[in-house]
Amino acid sequence: MKNSNSSSSKLFTFGLVAAWYSSNIGVLLLNKYLLSNYGFKYPIFLRMCHMTACSLLSYIAIAWMKMPHLLPSAVSGNVSLKYLPVSFNQAIGATTPFFTAIFGYLMTSKREAWLTYITLIPIVTGVIIASGGEPSFHLFGFIMCIGAMAARPLKSVVQDILLSSEG
């Protein structure tokens, strides 16, 4: 019996992860199509629709299915899709661990192991090289994308501070 519950739990977790990835990729591609190919001029409206859908589905998951859920959001990520290809947007997303380590150090004085900082160097270098070689590079889109990528770890570090403080 225990093995059956364990395998069905793993299958359920796999299904949730697959659904999460699929929905994120779908929203990303749909936003890219609407903003770049279709000429839709309202990225904030798209973010509002996405957040409304996430709120409703989160309510269902939390209230009815008893599943906790955490939703990050950043309008600048949608704005960047109007100017940058999805693949480049995702490549810039590789900088998230870099920003997490930097914000963690600046805001909490928490130091990671030196190996962690050293492993971030090729990641950031790769993004810099990709930026220089990207044929569809757009400075404003790049700034918006970096802002979105930095906002996620900033939010995580602030949440960590708020959740771990005694007050």
Rank of each mutant, 00 (worst) to 15 (best):
A74S: 15
N78L: 09
S76M: 05
L106S: 10
T96M: 15
N89C: 09
T96A: 14
R111Y: 05
E134F: 02
A74Q: 11
I92N: 01
F98E: 15
Y83I: 04
P122D: 12
L120M: 06
L57N: 02
Y117E: 09
T116S: 11
L57M: 13
G77L: 04
I129R: 02
H50P: 00
V75M: 09
Y59T: 02
Y117G: 11
I60K: 13
A113S: 14
L81G: 05
L115R: 13
C49K: 01
T119Y: 13
T125Y: 05
S131A: 15
G126Y: 10
A74M: 07
A101D: 04
E112F: 05
I62E: 11
I121S: 10
E134V: 06
Y117S: 09
P68I: 00
C49H: 00
L57H: 00
S76F: 02
G132D: 00
T52S: 12
Y59C: 07
L57F: 15
L56F: 14
H69L: 12
F99I: 05
V79D: 00
M65P: 00
I60Y: 15
A61R: 06
E112N: 04
M67Q: 15
I60C: 08
P85N: 15
S73D: 10
A130L: 15
Y117I: 07
G132Q: 08
S109Q: 14
K110T: 11
H69T: 13
L106C: 12
W64I: 07
A101K: 01
R47W: 00
A74D: 15
L70A: 09
